[in-house]
Design a protein around this nucleic acid. Structure first.
Lengths: 360, 360
DNA sequence: TATTCAGTTGTAAACGTTTTCTAGACAAAG
DNA sequence: CTTTGTCTAGAAAACGTTTACAACTGAATA
């Protein structure tokens, strides 16, 4: 009934039509388009001709249903609105298509509920692998992926499951370069604005900062360790908190570039100048960082490397059925990019908030 | 063989398992989970209990295969790296899930080749509708969607096909407000940096600008109509071209916010101040616009409205099988948001480039 | 010339759903 | 008590592929 031309809709071109048109069986068509080497060249040519003439392409759903493989890679990020993630997505997609995969994106907006929905969607669409570039994942969600034998890759959070691998970013090196850079300029009072501390990666960046400070012989002031949320607004708010303090730092490091841009804005509103009044360093090196005013000194984390490593690991892990994963842990380098938001500290003698000073 | 527990893999929980567990037929399970009202309450309860206990969810591929509907909406954008698009994507996804759909994203990077791949992917995944938020689409790609009876929605480019509708943004109103604002401040020499002119929307924004200038009694100088490409780099380059001219405008309008940020950077590099030396207005009102230094005066185009209208139109069009589309054309409002990049023109008397002046 | 073997092609059985259609069950009406 | 009608559950046929397996071909060997 459905195939009848009576109902007005164009006749669906499926593998059967192609087979008929090329005068071969559907199995031969299938083998041809999947590049199975045993098909006769003459028949293959006929098939390709038919494919071309009928403008045929296979139905992904049917293909996925029978083969069990969707050729889909999931990518879960915390916030698509943070410019770091689109850049990551772009690179991830590039890497995925290079391997014949497509991507399904999920943005959690830091909400566990949304995360759950994302995970479920990934499961429903039967992704062949999933990169989880955010934290706050309930274990039971991951269990399901493990049960289905779907490889996963995380940032920073290690796991010893055979199909789970981790991308470990060398935060310490980059942050250390940043702290050293600031120390050499003469800064001794450095604040740090972290991301939401429930995120592993944010936690790690913060503790790396503390370590690096000690390494540089500098003491960390708890008042200057502010928890932000990786957004523009969060950066602004955090800086406002610092400005409300009686004692000011001379420099502030941020857990990501967006936060740094928010800080710049807070400083602008307070008529404070960067780097004259405060030095500022970001993290990520988003493309935009080159365009802030003044251009942002920041720690570069190559999202191209990140994306390529993630895809490579996923694909390698999904292919091997048994044993330890090949890519268990890959290291991602970071390094400081010095631009124009860092300079000499304004007032090396006093750390008093000028407004408080007046009061006294 | 596959179902045997011997092979070590966990037994797949499919609709059959649920049926067995609930002691009903698979048809009843299907009807229950699809909320068909005719199933007996007792049986339904048993089914839901089984679903819950087995942690079952349906296989999307199988579902899509038989029903012909993928519950997937395609969204093709020009460049995921431009912050306007992530914001759009976010809203689009929100609107889509609210209607029980998911989204498949394609980013063309302005390359026809990539666009073709995107379109093909959408077709292969059998999207139920596609929003094309970019231009440069070959007609033959669209034909295929039409042949498959898949509704489409475009920005700005009208079409009279029954399943194609268009989102028409009221550029003129916003741009006119911008020009008026500048004119009231005393600006008479206004430049415009467009997007790539092969894009309809860029073309429209540019011609709207010309019209609005005439409307304000201002003449447009061809030298100050620069073609950009909607990127940071493009904005910077365009502004550098303007600065190289003998005669300078006192204000510049940009086809999007990213361009404006690029312009700010070029000005910063040239040690020129905004708005003291130049007034600047952007377009889109990306969230970031509030955070540039100084904050950017820009024309707001609500991407929430855009996204919601797009999804609504798509869904409405896919449901009605015959006749004219319900949503043939929806209007999206724009309006000027005045922040701090616009001010009085510096030198109302002379438009000479200060450097050229010295030469003379 | 008969037999084996390798190499290809075609047939048919999956894959996990939705959905049409048939068959019961039960109530109301004759 | 039979007939008719109204529901609802279950059986089975799709959906468009892949792929195991059977069947065929022709060449090489005995």
């Amino acid at each position: 009934m459905k195939r009848s031309p009576k109902d007005g809709t164009a006749p669906r071109i499926d593998i059967r039509s192609v087979a008929q048109h090329a005068r071969v069986s559907i199995a031969t068509v299938s083998r041809t388009i999947n590049h199975v080497p045993t098909v006769d060249a003459t028949l293959a040519a006929r098939v390709w001709k038919a494919v071309d003439e009928l403008n045929y392409f296979p139905n992904t759903q049917a293909r996925a249903l029978v083969s069990g493989k969707s050729k889909l890679l999931g990518l879960i990020v915390s916030e698509i609105t943070n410019p770091f993630f689109p850049e990551l997505i772009q690179e991830f997609e590039l890497a995925a298509v290079a391997h014949g995969y497509e991507i399904l994106i999920g943005s959690t907006n830091y909400e566990p509920k949304t995360m759950e929905l994302c995970a479920r969607r990934m499961l429903e669409r039967k992704v062949d692998g999933v990169a989880i570039m955010t934290f706050g994942v309930e274990e039971f969600l991951l269990d399901r992926f493990t049960a289905e034998d779907i490889p996963m890759i995380f940032m920073d959070v290690p796991s010893k499951h055979p199909k789970r691998s981790t991308l470990s970013v060398d935060y310490r090196a980059g942050i250390n370069e940043g702290v050293q850079h600031l120390a050499v300029l003469g800064h001794r009072r450095i604040a740090f604005i972290s991301g939401p501390l429930k995120l592993w990666s944010a936690e790690i960046r913060r503790s790396s900062f503390s370590d690096c400070m000690r390494l540089a012989g500098l003491s960390v002031n708890e008042d200057w360790l502010i928890e932000g949320d990786h957004t523009l607004d969060g950066g602004r708010d955090a800086m406002q908190k610092i400005l409300a303090l009686d004692h000011w730092p001379t420099a502030v490091m941020c857990s990501n570039d967006l936060t740094a841009i928010g800080v710049q804005h807070a400083l602008f509103e307070a008529s404070l100048k960067v780097p004259d009044d405060f030095s500022l360093v970001g993290f990520d090196d988003v493309h935009l960082a080159e365009y802030t005013i003044p251009p942002l000194t920041t720690v570069r984390m190559s999202c191209k490397d990140l994306a390529q490593a993630a895809v490579a690991s996923l694909i390698s892990n999904m292919h091997q059925t048994e044993g330890k994963p090949q890519h268990d842990r890959t290291n991602i380098q970071t390094r400081l990019i010095v631009r124009q938001t860092t300079g000499l500290p304004k007032d090396a003698l006093s750390d008093l908030n000028p407004k408080s000073k007046k009061k006294k």
